[in-house]
Design a protein around this nucleic acid. Structure first.
Lengths: 107, 107
DNA sequence: TTGACATGCAACCTATTGGTTGCATATTGT
DNA sequence: ACAATATGCAACCAATAGGTTGCATGTCAA
């Protein structure tokens, strides 16, 4: 869970996921083409994405193919984002109430 | 968008959001009670959450009340997580296909 | 077999992050 | 008015993150 959030925090890593979304099963070399950094830097990002289980890899000869795994994103939504969303309207009404309460205390 | 992801990357900040989820409108002092760090550290986290628009604040006298704003989380889901989720099954089937393809190439 | 290709591993550097301490400011209650 | 309370601001510090360069390893193709 923690690793997934951390993996998503970096824009380059999100871009990598976007690349894989566009065309799954890319090699490291192919993924490098779209990022303005060295191959080694991209490798590091991919390692983090793998650790978060957001990317699965398969060796084919000397090439490493990268596949997007959206399951952890689903879990983030269900366990975390959904939790707040469900009460979105209530939270906003609380905020409004708080603002009015403040107004009253002041005035 | 970027700021939201960054804000969510830290476990202490997620814990703060959890606190506000449990009971909205807490003061800084109240939020500090549950975190094992100095008040100033908590303030820094809250500043980041505010910058990401995940927390809205209201002054009531000398107290600062903090309110959870789940809207950016909704946006993350819609613009980003949902994008992958929608094609979750397809992506998994691609992964499977990739594995089989590899198996064939090897054998 | 051998050279080119695709990737891995490790040391290193700099910027950022998460935390601290110390002091300043503003509000409250007596 | 004044002491206590609630918070802000800034300097500082250690750990981590994101990037680099250099070299090693393993696979393909002629």
């Amino acid at each position: 869970m923690d690793e997934v959030f951390k993996a998503l925090a970096d824009p380059s890593r999100r871009k990598l996921l976007d690349e894989l979304f566009k065309s799954n099963g890319k090699t490291l070399g192919e993924l490098c083409e779209h990022l303005d950094m060295t191959r080694q830097a991209v490798t590091k990002h991919l390692v983090i994405l793998e650790a978060a289980n957001l990317v699965a890899t398969v060796w084919r000869g000397r090439e490493k193919l990268h596949y997007l795994n959206p399951v952890p994103l689903q879990e983030i939504y269900e366990r975390w984002i959904g939790k707040y969303e469900r009460h979105r309207l209530r939270a906003l009404s609380d905020l409004k109430k708080g603002l009015e309460q403040n107004k009253n205390k002041k005035g």
